[in-house]
Design a protein around this nucleic acid. Sequence first.
DNA 1: AAATAAAATTAGTCATAACTAATAATTATG
DNA 2: CATAATTATTAGTTATGACTAATTTTATTT
Lengths: 219, 219
Amino acid sequence: MKKTYSEENYLKAIYHLGKAKHKVSPKAIADALENNPASVIDMLKKLQEKELITYDKTKGAFLSHTGEIAALDIIRKHRLWEVFLVDKLNYGWDEVHDIAEQLEHIHDDQLAKKLDDFLGNPAFDPHGDPIPGSNGKMPVYANILLSDIAVNQVCKVGSVRDTSPAFLKYLKQLDLGLGAKIKVLEKQEFDNSMVITINGGQQKTVSNKMTDHILVIQE
Amino acid sequence: MKKTYSEENYLKAIYHLGKAKHKVSPKAIADALENNPASVIDMLKKLQEKELITYDKTKGAFLSHTGEIAALDIIRKHRLWEVFLVDKLNYGWDEVHDIAEQLEHIHDDQLAKKLDDFLGNPAFDPHGDPIPGSNGKMPVYANILLSDIAVNQVCKVGSVRDTSPAFLKYLKQLDLGLGAKIKVLEKQEFDNSMVITINGGQQKTVSNKMTDHILVIQE
DNA sequence: AAATAAAATTAGTCATAACTAATAATTATG
DNA sequence: CATAATTATTAGTTATGACTAATTTTATTT
């Protein structure tokens, strides 16, 4: 059963929202896709008819088994293309999201595998997110939010939970790349902002909005 | 001015038909795109409003300057992606057309140049067709049809004028690849079929339909 | 619990790009 | 040259996937 460009984007959004443990409501999907809740309802009906999701007013949307396989396949292709763009074409990691967003929809039975092999079967994309395997399973790595790290603890950046250019640009400005070592010096109770050092550099203050979007591995 | 997937396909088809010196009629375009003449007329109106083409009932469609630049840009991307698929991902030259047909529509300002550099600035795609430059100009090479080669002349395959899987499969079967040396032994006046040898191998008889789709360089 | 706010839903519209069927214009052929 | 065949064109329809506006349902406050 072939899926349209649009259907694939919905499946991907539902997967990501579901994983973030949000209730996958029409509003949430509309926000993620930057469109209208009315449009979302229409599409949820279509996806349900195709048995790619189940949708219940109170519980929200859930991917069916077939739906999850399809979502992971798209995410796999997205992340493989990101690796290609950064490793082979020398794009910056903050530039590749929109292009991968287009490339992920290229359909061909052999493409993902051939690309995967060409890239040396990478485990992570340039943002540190794990690349689902050809078996349709997402590998799991224990990551916790930077905002949950206690004062005086040290950790390193494992991945980021946002791909907006504004966010990535800010990361670059802070020199906060993948693997950067972070020490938490202070935590403000009022707004949860943090004072940290990055790779032993100057002290920087970062907001809770920031630290909620960075996943780290504890030392 | 951004173009839709569909508009790009029409521009490409109009370019190719125009180059083949056919009258670029709605019927011809409909045949090339495997759709309906009525649909073509609708689109020709849209393209004319956007000043990408001119269309005249008796003379047919012609690309405007902007239209030709756009067409060559798509063809450039198509052919670069074909090189990528064959050289880097180890696809066969007969397998890449449909994938490149999708990849050519990826939009990004830097992509074609970065891909071009990564591939080592190739001059030809895997079918032997020249790759337009970033200046929007198509390089010209003197090629003539195999059907125009005289008896006892020798030539080599420069490129092919058909990308259908059936045609490419037949070429493979004949071991008739790019650069293959062809000697014309006989020419049948009745149906223009030819008896040839390929790379000094066995004698083969090929139809005029075949020899009209193979461009060769004379020795 | 009533009032208010937010979210979900329905109904109707629009743009894109295809289609079919009917008609007009052209080109070919007897 | 008249008729047949082929093309071009118009009109009307369909599917996809978005939209707005109005309404209903659910949540949150006071």
